[in-house]
Structure formats: C-alpha cells, structure tokens
Design a protein around this nucleic acid. Structure first.
Length: 847
DNA sequence: GCAAGGTC
C-alpha cells in the first residue's frame, strides 16, 4: 500500500507555518495546492485553514424575505456549506491520499468545532484514515513537540456544543431580524437586526442612556482653603465634616449652610495642624495583556477598539507580536522573560530599559485572574521591527505592547501618602444657631517614592500632589478661600473599551468578536458618535424586544446558552435536546409577536423618522427631515412633500448626524457631517442657506475648478474670522479660493477679464485720504502675485516670509520700492499681525 | 440583505 503524506491541519496559515518550522527543524518548503499554501517536508504536509471554512445557513429557497414567513425559519432545514472554496478543495485533495491526519486547531471551544469541520471534510473523501487531535496553548518548541508526541482524539461533544450555538444564533437572529425588518418595511440595506450578542450590547447602551435621561441633578457646594506654612510653602486644603455615620464628607447640600461655613472660613486667619498621617502604598505592576485589557490600554491612547485590533493584527502578521485574540492573562511556562528581555538589549529605544530590568536578581512576571488554554497573553515576539518600517500607529501600539511586557516583569512602585488635617477651633458656623463647631480642613498629598514599573510603562498617571511636611500643632496661615457650586453628574456613557470590558464580564461575545459587534451597531444605525450614543431607532428596537422577545436583548440568553453548552460538552445534555428547546422558546416568542406586528412596525418607523427630524418647516410647519436624493446625496426636505416642496441643501462631504443643539432662530437641530478626519459641524442648515444666499448676491462667475462638472460658482465671501476671499459656492466640497485684501470695500465693476471672464474688482475706502485701487480680475491678481513670488524682492527683507509677503501684496505693496514709500501707520493697520515698528524696521532694512 | 464565530 502506498503511503501518502501525514497531514496536519491548523486554524490559520500563520500557525501552520510555525508548526511546520518546529516539526521540520526549519527545513519545510512551501507549495500551492488549489491556491492555498501548504508546508511540505519529508512525508508531511501542513495546511492552515482560515477559521471556519464551512458555515451554517438555510437552503436557497428560504432566501427571499418576502416569500417566507419569518416564523417558518424556526423549523427550516439548516445546511453546512463551504465558505472558503479554495481551502476546502486543497484540504480534500490532501486528505484523499493522506496516511494520517492530525488536527491542530486552537485550543478552545471554537477551535474544537473548526477541527470537527475539518474532520468531516476529510471523512467525505477518506473513510479510513486515522484522525488525531493535538492541543497546545502556545506555539513553542516544547509545547508543540510534546503535543505531537501525545496525540489525543477530537472532542465531539465539545464541538457539538459549538454547533448548538451556531444553530441557535442563526434561528433567533435570522427569524427576528426578518420579522422586525418586514414589519417596519425596512428591506435591502436598511434592515433592522437583532441577535444574541448585539441585542444585549445595545441594551447596555440604551439602559445607560435611560439612566442619564432620568437623572435629576442635585446642587451641592465644596469649600477650599489655601494654607501656608512659614518655611515649607503653600498648599490647597478642602473643608470636610463628619456625617451621621461618622464618615468624612466634603459635599454640603444646603446652600445657606455652605455660605455660612464659607463666611466663617474667610474670617479665620489661621488653622492648627491636628494630625499628620503618613503611609506608604505599594503599587503593583499590571497583569499581562489579554485582548480586552489591550483594547482598554490602546483606548487611553485614543484608538477605537476596531483600530487597536487591526493594528495589532498587522503587527502579529508581520511577526512582531504574538496572537492578539486571547483571553489569557498568565504567561506560559515556556516564556523565559530573561530571554525575551535580552532580545531588546542594544535597541536604541528599548535597550536601556531592558538592560535595567535584566539587572534584577529575580524576574517574576505578574499574573492576571484569567488563565486559559487558547493563546498566550499578547507580548512582543522578540523579533524587533525597525522604526522606519512601521507607520506611526503601528509603532505606538508596538511600543505599548513592549512596555506592557516590560511592566509585567518590573518592580512594584511605591507611593508615599501624606494626609494633613487642620482645625479652626470654636467658630460659630450658622447664624442664630447657638452651637458652635470646629471647622476642619484636610489635604491629601502623594509622592512617587519608587518609580518601579512606571519607569518602563509611562501610560498610567504618575502625577503627584504636593503637601508639605508639617507637624501637629503647627499654625498655618489661611491665605485664600474658595466656594465652588457643583451639581451631581449623571452616570457616564460607556466608552468603547468600557463597553468591551462590560461585555466580557457578562460573557457576551468573544475576544475575537466584541469589537466587531460595536462596529456593527454603528453600521446598522443604532449608534452615533464616540463615546457611542443610541439612536431613537435603537431605543425602539430595544423596547420592542423587551416587550416581546426579552431573551434577545438580555444577557441571560448567553448565560443559559453557556450552561447548555457546558452540559453538552459534559455529555449531560444532547445537542438535539438543547436546540429543540430553543426552537420551542422561539415559537412562544412568535406566538406573541405576530399579533403586534403592525404596532411594532409603526413604532420603529416613527423612531426612524425621529432620527432624521430637524424641526419645523418654515413654510408649512410640518417636520423637516434628512432625505436622500436619487443620486444618493443627502438633503433636507419637508415631511409634507409633495404638498410642500421646501428644501435645504447639505454639503456632499460626509454622512449627516443631527446634534442635540438647536438653532434658536430657526428651531432646527444643528448638523454635523461625519467624514473621518474631515468631519465638521455644518451648524443650522437654515442659517447656512441664508449665508449662501447672501453670497449669491456677490457671485462673480463660474468656479474654474468645479464649475463645468458640478456647477460651482465663485463668490466674494466674508468668513467668520473676519477675513475675506473669493471662494467656491460648493465649499467644503470644493476648496478653490483666491485671497482678497482685508481692508476696504470690494466693488464689482462692469469690466470683465477677457481671459477668465470674471469682473474686475475695485477696492475703495471710506477713509477719504485713502485712494481706491484696481485689484482687477482676482485670478489674474493672484497669478501676478504668484509670478512675483518667484523673484519677489519682498522676501529678501529680514522678517518677511512667504505669508507676510502675500499679505503685503494683497494690500497693494508689490515690491521693496513700494514698501519703502508706504505710510507705516496705514500699512500696519491694513496688514494683520504687523505693527508700526515692524514696518519701520523693514523700511530701514530696505535702505 | 438575517446571527455569531472563526480569520485576512
């Protein structure tokens, strides 16, 4: 019998490459099979999948949403079909001749399912071959060799647990998504989605928004006093008192009382130190990075979750970081921190820190609470990129991960805390109230005594508060007092990283998907802005779900599913039992839903409209809405259309977002245009349209840049900062502009430039002493200016750069002779940021 | 055009 190759299957190409390298001692070659890379040595082949290469779905006859009642999906058949054709073909081709198959997918539940998918593909073409399973949690020599020396079997029960999840997610997600979309008549791109993970995530955000909306702020006051010692300098202290439970309290809830305390404080001249407490606090270095903690740290450097992950994925693919999708916060035994630190010695950025850390007698890395088998925590691989081959973002993230690793092997930091309490004895506090009481002040100082890990990980605050070394009994002078009126604040919105941490805590989503879920909620029109805020649509969907299908927005569905999956994996429940029960529950949901179809649809449609509503139409009083033209551009139109044809334009750059700010004059919500880095606030669209109308009176011709294609026109514009220019009416879509002088009135004459067709402009002055002058055609004027620029003598003068020369030329000073003859006072007045003395200096220099 | 989970 001919012996075919032994085939090893991993979850991704990267893992295949590294395993081939280890098992072949670096001798493996690559070949392409059906377009897929296969690693090849001796009688062995190693192939990497791309995660799931097959997916579950309904058969094609269920594809048309309008033909199939959503409820029918509950009992519809579910197929498994290849989703990565090339890889599936390559796998079949290898499997046909295989003498032995080893499944080496990731060591977690989804990895077991991906392994089973590979197993089934192999079995389709080869009934007899032996199929093993190996498990390792980091791709190191020792772990991989050990795993291949002791192969195990695929855990079909664990894989079945994953299959139950797939089916339940599909049934609930597809049936309810179709139901909501159909009832609100939102088909095509604007469908209304719900699911086991996006539902509860959205509810977290909506619930928080409800708390914020319901929040009733309360007034309170805080009091401060500046204290001064004779020799050690001044510091700030805060008034406090003991509440009923004997705890220190700083907030005064009664304004009259706050005023009385403030008066008493202000009248006092000294306070006596009552106690001085000093204690040292140990500040331990952070645990290794798992995905969630990495996203959080990158978030504090202003990366969105999605951005942080894609940068980390690139650095992983390039070989500089370990796998970025992991739950683990405990380094594997195989990781020798000393060896990894040594990789950094001699490096210009990290060398000194690495050497400093290596000088320690003992290196004991920190450990987090999560210890899992999936992958090691995120750390640098020890292969160093050069600064120039990474983008700024990549470098910043790389440095963060390197420094986090450094921190986990660094020493504790030590802080010294100093608390000083001072008293103003026996002051009468409340007018007319007989009892007197002591006024107490406190100050908390902290000082970083031992920088420890902060020296290599500068991302946490190291700010110190200075409180001088005083002794009990010292008299302190009160040099100033302040009263601050404050209000209690509503809870804060979730930022993306807080949201991901909360999801992790509730067991919603996985390390690989949480950031995608948040992106999805933005895409579906449920979230706007960052930190994310829910739209009216989001609130309506959550409300409808709470009423009829609470499971799909509650985290308990995941908790229940987790419990069921554990039971399947443990052999206590069967896959069929769990999926049948879930189908029954979903049928119950649909029993209630079907009657309310119209009500739910109406509610969602109203919310969709509210998300687009700006305010009253000035013509008919109906609502003005954001609408989309046939060409796909946005504009503002009236809900009363076609009876009312009122419209307002919107810039074509970006996607409009309605703000809460309302224009007082027109009662319309202001508009912001989201366009990545080019995002800008458009403001009240009516005000903008009025301003554009004013400009229209001063239109002088077609825009040379976009006039032919888009009909842009040139107009004389007055900007908010007071300066003027000739600009395109399609700004900001077209940024064509020509400069104009800052002073004087611009008159449009009847003469036209033959070359450009624009009217000649005349600059006149109210000041009768000042003569008017012809600026001419603004394009010619600018061309002349540019021509002069090339050989401009003005810039030869010290202190005149390109910008200043431009300003001078616009003011009619063309050359050094002109500058010499100019009246310094007038010129200084005309040119921004230039004083009389400066002009005189230039004139002296010109001589 | 649905979900959530892999990976790119």
């Amino acid at each position: 019998m001919s012996r075919g190759p032994a085939v090893i299957i991993t979850e991704k190409d990267n893992a295949a490459r590294r395993i081939a390298e280890i098992l072949s001692d670096g001798t493996a070659d690559t070949e392409r099979v059906a377009g897929t890379t296969v690693y090849n040595w001796g009688g062995n082949r190693c192939i990497g999948l791309s995660g799931h290469v097959v997916g579950v779905d309904f058969p094609p006859e269920y594809n048309d949403w309008r033909d199939v009642e959503p409820v029918e999906l509950i009992d519809a058949p579910i197929d498994k079909q290849p989703t990565q054709e090339g890889i599936v073909r390559a796998l079949r081709q290898l499997a046909r001749r295989a003498s032995h198959v080893t499944i080496a997918t990731d060591y977690d539940r989804e990895g077991e399912l991906i392994g089973k998918e590979a197993y089934e593909l192999v079995r389709e073409v080869n009934e007899d071959v032996q199929i093993d399973r190996v498990r390792f949690s980091s791709i190191t020599d020792r772990e991989v060799t050990e795993a291949f020396d002791n192969p195990d079997e695929l855990d079909f029960e664990l894989a079945a647990a994953g299959e139950a999840r797939q089916v339940i997610d599909l049934l609930w997600g597809a049936a309810l998504t179709r139901f909501l979309s159909l009832s609100a008549r939102q088909l095509g791109d604007d469908f209304i989605s719900v699911g086991r993970v996006q539902g509860p995530t959205l509810k977290l955000i909506v619930d928080r928004e409800r708390e914020i909306e319901a929040f009733d702020p309360e007034d309170y006051w805080e009091l401060f006093a500046d204290l001064e010692t004779d020799e050690a300098g001044g510091f700030e202290s805060q008034y406090f008192y003991r509440d009923e439970d004997g705890n220190e309290a700083e907030r005064l809830w009664d304004g009259d009382r706050a005023d009385a305390v403030y008066d008493a404080l202000t009248e006092s001249e000294t306070a006596a130190v009552d106690s001085v407490n000093r204690r040292t606090r140990t500040d331990s270095p952070p645990a290794p990075f798992n995905t969630t903690q990495f996203i959080r740290a990158a978030g504090s450097l202003n990366y969105s979750a999605q951005q942080a992950m894609s940068v980390a994925e690139e650095l992983y693919t390039a070989g500089y970081l370990t796998y970025p999708r992991t739950d683990n916060t405990v380094y594997p035994e195989d990781l020798d921190p000393r060896e990894l630190l040594e990789a950094f010695t001699g490096d210009s950025t990290f060398g000194d820190d690495a050497e400093g850390l290596l000088a320690a007698d003992e290196i004991e890395p920190t450990e987090g609470d999560e210890e899992t088998t999936d992958h090691p925590p995120i750390h640098p691989t020890g292969e160093l990129p050069s600064r120039s081959e990474l983008s700024d973002d990549e470098w910043e993230i790389y440095e963060l991960v390197v420094r986090r690793f450094f921190a986990t092997v660094a020493d504790d930091a030590t802080w010294e805390h100093l608390k000083v309490v001072a008293e103003i004895a026996d002051r009468e506090v409340v007018d007319g109230e007989p009892p007197t009481e002591d006024l107490t002040l406190k100050a908390n100082g902290k000082r970083l005594v031992e920088a420890g890990y902060h020296a290599v990980y500068p991302y946490f605050s190291q700010s110190e508060t200075h409180v001088p070394d005083v002794t009990t009994g010292d008299e302190l002078a009160i040099t100033d007092t302040q009263i601050e009126a404050k209000q209690t604040q509503p809870p804060r919105r979730y930022g993306q990283s807080r949201l991901i941490e909360t999801m992790e805590g509730l067991g919603i989503g996985t390390k690989s998907t949480r950031h995608h879920t948040i992106e999805k909620l933005y895409d579906r029109g449920y979230l706007e802005n960052d930190p994310p805020r829910p739209t009216m649509l989001a609130k309506a969907v959550v409300e409808a779900a709470e009423e009829f299908a609470d499971q799909v927005v509650s985290e308990e569905m995941t908790a229940q599913l987790e419990a069921d999956m554990e039971a399947i994996a443990a052999g206590e429940k069967a896959y069929d039992e769990v999926t049948a029960e879930s189908r029954r529950l979903l049928e119950d949901v649909f029993d209630d839903l079907t009657d309310s179809r119209e009500a739910i649809g109406d509610q969602i449609q109203q919310s969709l409209k509210a998300d687009k509503t700006l305010g009253p139409c000035p013509e008919c009083g109906d609502d003005l809405l954001i609408r989309t033209s046939r060409q796909g551009s946005y504009f503002i139109g009236c809900n009363g259309y076609p009876d009312c044809e009122y419209t307002l334009p919107l810039p074509s750059t970006g996607k409009p977002l309605l703000l809460d700010e309302i224009c007082e004059e027109h009662e319309l919500r202001e508009v912001k245009l989201l366009a990545g880095r080019k995002t800008f606030v458009h403001g009240c669209p009516q005000c903008q349209a009025d301003a554009a109308d004013a400009e229209a009176d001063r239109v002088i011709g077609n825009c040379p840049e976009c006039g032919k294609e888009h009909g842009g026109e040139l107009a004389i514009k007055q900007l908010r900062n007071g300066s003027r220019l000739v600009g395109c009416t399609r700004y900001p879509d077209c940024e064509y502009s020509l400069p104009l002088p800052r002073r004087g009135d611009i008159e449009i004459t009847d003469d036209h430039c033959e070359e450009h067709g624009l009217p000649e402009l005349l600059v006149t002055y109210e000041d009768e002493d000042r003569e008017s002058w012809e600026l001419g055609c603004p394009i010619c004027n600018y061309r002349e200016y540019q021509a002069r620029q090339n050989g401009s003598a003005l810039e030869a003068i010290d202190g005149i750069g390109e910008k200043t020369a431009e300003k001078l030329q616009i003011a009619g000073i063309e050359d050094v002779a002109g500058l010499k003859n100019a009246n310094p006072d007038k010129l200084a007045e005309e040119v921004d940021g230039v004083g009389v003395d400066t002009v005189r200096d230039w004139q002296a220099d010109a001589d």
